[in-house]
Simulated scan of single mutants.
Amino acid sequence: MPIADSFVTFAVREARGVSPTYERLCLAVARDDELLARLEQLPAASRQPNLLLGVTRLLGGPVDDPVAFHDWVLSHWQMVEAQLRTRTTQTNEAGRCAALLPVLAALPQPLALVEVGASAGLCLYPDRYAYRYGEHLVGVGEPLLECAAVGLSPPARRPEVVWRAGLDLTPLDVTDPADVAWLDALIWPEHTHRRARLRAAAAVAATDPPLLLRGDLVDDLPALAAQAPADATLVVFHTSVLYQVPARRRAAFIETVRGLPGHWIANEAPETLPYDGLPRPPDGALHHVLALDGTPLAWTRSHGQSVTWFA
């Protein structure tokens, strides 16, 4: 996809109705020939809209005014470019657990979780968070994850997790202020509720840090999965990760995960992990497909804010 088109797509499908600041800014970048020319010199993975926005916020640049953004990014381009070339989008949104919970709670308990593309591992604690689906509460405590559920009877209880581990090319540490600052920079400007959620989820993880290994989702997954307790149901899962994986490696990962015992939960955009015969999504916004062992179950929003069940 041309770089300008990727910014328009991000503005219309992801930011519209969710972040007016980023919608306005990305539409402006899509018309900014000078900035697009700089981005054209970068590897494809370094041109992602959310990555440029997050890096700018991390470095203290302005994102509330397109003109100020243009001037600041170009005048600080050497610093911005260095970050774009070395960082990846690692949004670690604990709210996604609200989309995963109905599937996790329905599997044979207890569970041993392995998250691929785990970032700081905040989605490895579905048993520690509280949830609200409309008027239905599941569990108590902080953070409280709110999710609009359509066509779904929310679970009565949280899953029992006896072992949790994550795999990432560059795992983050929730006890490291610099790593938490990067997670914060990836949260969109207006989303103060997500910042509070990040702090609460990081506090949960910091009291009982997960096993996070630096490694590849194909080469290193079988060895990590083999460490899971034999008397627990193994669940390998990922949310909004595979779009960063080249197509051949993506196919190799699917073959690898299908060969493991237990279950596989995917929550990815349909363009990234396609399925035959999907119903229409609820609207024109970006929706992910929640699937269990290759069978699609529901449409979800990227931050876990809604689940529309169709299975």
Rank of each mutant, 00 (worst) to 15 (best):
I254V: 07
I254L: 14
I254R: 13
I254W: 11
E255G: 13
T256G: 11
T256R: 08
V257F: 00
V257H: 01
R258L: 13
R258I: 00
R258D: 11
G259H: 02
G259R: 04
G259P: 12
G259S: 13
G259F: 02
G259Q: 06
L260K: 02
L260S: 14
L260D: 06
P261L: 02
P261T: 14
G262H: 05
G262P: 10
H263V: 01
H263W: 03
H263S: 09
H263T: 03
I265Q: 08
I265L: 14
A266K: 11
A266R: 11
A266Y: 07
A266V: 06
A266W: 00
N267Y: 04
N267A: 02
N267L: 14
N267I: 03
N267R: 09
N267T: 02
N267W: 00
E268Q: 09
A269V: 09
A269T: 10
A269G: 13
P270H: 07
E271F: 00
E271W: 00
E271S: 12
E271M: 11
E271C: 08
T272H: 02
T272V: 15
L273T: 04
L273Q: 12
P274F: 09
P274M: 09
P274Y: 03
P274N: 11
Y275L: 04
Y275C: 05
Y275P: 05
Y275I: 04
D276M: 11
G277R: 14
G277K: 12
G277E: 08
L278W: 12
L278H: 04
L278F: 05
L278E: 05
L278N: 03
L278G: 04
P279Y: 11
R280K: 08
R280V: 11
R280D: 15
P281G: 08
P281N: 05
P282M: 14
P282L: 12
P282D: 13
P282A: 13
P282S: 07
D283T: 07
D283L: 01
D283Q: 10
D283H: 15
D283P: 05
G284L: 06
G284K: 01
G284W: 03
G284I: 01
A285Q: 15
A285R: 15
A285G: 14
L286D: 13
L286Y: 01
H287R: 07
H287G: 03
H287L: 03
H287T: 10
H288R: 11
L290P: 08
L290N: 01
A291E: 01
A291N: 03
L292K: 06
L292A: 01
L292F: 09
D293N: 11
D293H: 05
D293P: 03
D293Q: 10
G294R: 09
G294V: 10
T295H: 12
T295G: 04
T295K: 15
P296I: 09
P296C: 01
P296G: 08
P296K: 06
L297N: 13
L297K: 10
L297R: 10
A298I: 05
A298E: 04
W299E: 00
T300I: 05
R301M: 05
S302A: 11
S302H: 11
H303D: 13
H303G: 05
G304V: 00
G304W: 00
Q305A: 13
Q305N: 06
